[in-house]
Amino acid sequence: MKKRIWSWRVTAGFGVLFAVALVVGVSVGPIPLPFAGVVQTLFGGGHALSSVDQAVLLQIRLPRVILAGLVGAALATSGAVYQTVFRNPLADPYLLGVAAGAGLGATLAFVLGGSVLLGATGVALVPVFAFVGALAAVAVTFLVAGARRSDPRTLLLAGVAVGSFATAAQTYLFQSHTQILRTVYSWILGQLVAADWSTVAWTAGYLVLALGVLFVIARRLDGLLLSDEEAHSLGLKPARLRAVAIAAATLATATAVAAGGLIGFVGLVIPHLIRGLLHRATNRSLPAIALAGGAFLIFADLGARTLLSPAELPIGVITAFVGAPFFLWILRRGGRP
């Protein structure tokens, strides 16, 4: 009972952090907006801001901040789940080839759809292709790893190979369809730039499903850290649990990739940071990880929006700048956070 209260407090603490990130993200941007006017517009609905400023706040900034929060939460949560399922501290959507598979799927959508798909309505099809690509990548990774799939190293190496293959196929598609090159590249670097409410809506829809499933099975996921025999003895069905967890984490990753482009290292840095802070590897901290991931990406996107203002800085640059040294640090410590 005590433990449960403690866990709720921690989660609430990260909820506050997320709320702070939201407030800062909405208040700060390339265009200075009066804070009082922002608060009044958001909560009072009045006309405290000029119509242009109101459009900037409600149509540009707010959906972008919320989308960054959603994408960050999805990447951090799926990273944490992959690390548990594969019993590997370095597992993240990138190393497993999932993100590359999603990227290939999305590129295929651009190639097949051509100009028709690139219009306003067609873009909604991209996440579907991304999910199919991501699922295919995970499935192939599993098949390639074969009977030794419970060995984390085999699985991770298979993931790297699958990811390289997907990236190669994607590069081939680029080179043979140079007319889509620019569109796909800017998409890969991140679409938070073009966030609007419709993107927020479908992203939230997919993530409620994916993260909902993961939060519900979070407690049971800890059983996957044990050997399969031990898990069985606890009354768990490790194979089925693993399949459900991977499917849900993959849906979360694909949605994040489709909405935000390829943003690396969030799935690695945040779970390790939170679990390190809490001194425990359990998945009870999953909601806290989601909230922290959302807050992290909101701040990273704030940097993307403002550091080179009025020009954009690709958000992947910021997350890699923070994440890559962190990755090396984990490696040096032998994989322990």
């Binding site: 080179l308 203002s309 009025p310 954009e312």
Partner: peptide, 20 residues
């Protein structure tokens, strides 16, 4: 306005700035 921040000559503008 973004020429100083982006030396390439082809900056990506933030939507907020563009509207303003």
């Amino acid at each position: 306005a973004a020429a100083g921040a982006d030396q390439s000559g082809y900056p990506q503008l933030t939507a907020e700035y563009l509207i303003k």
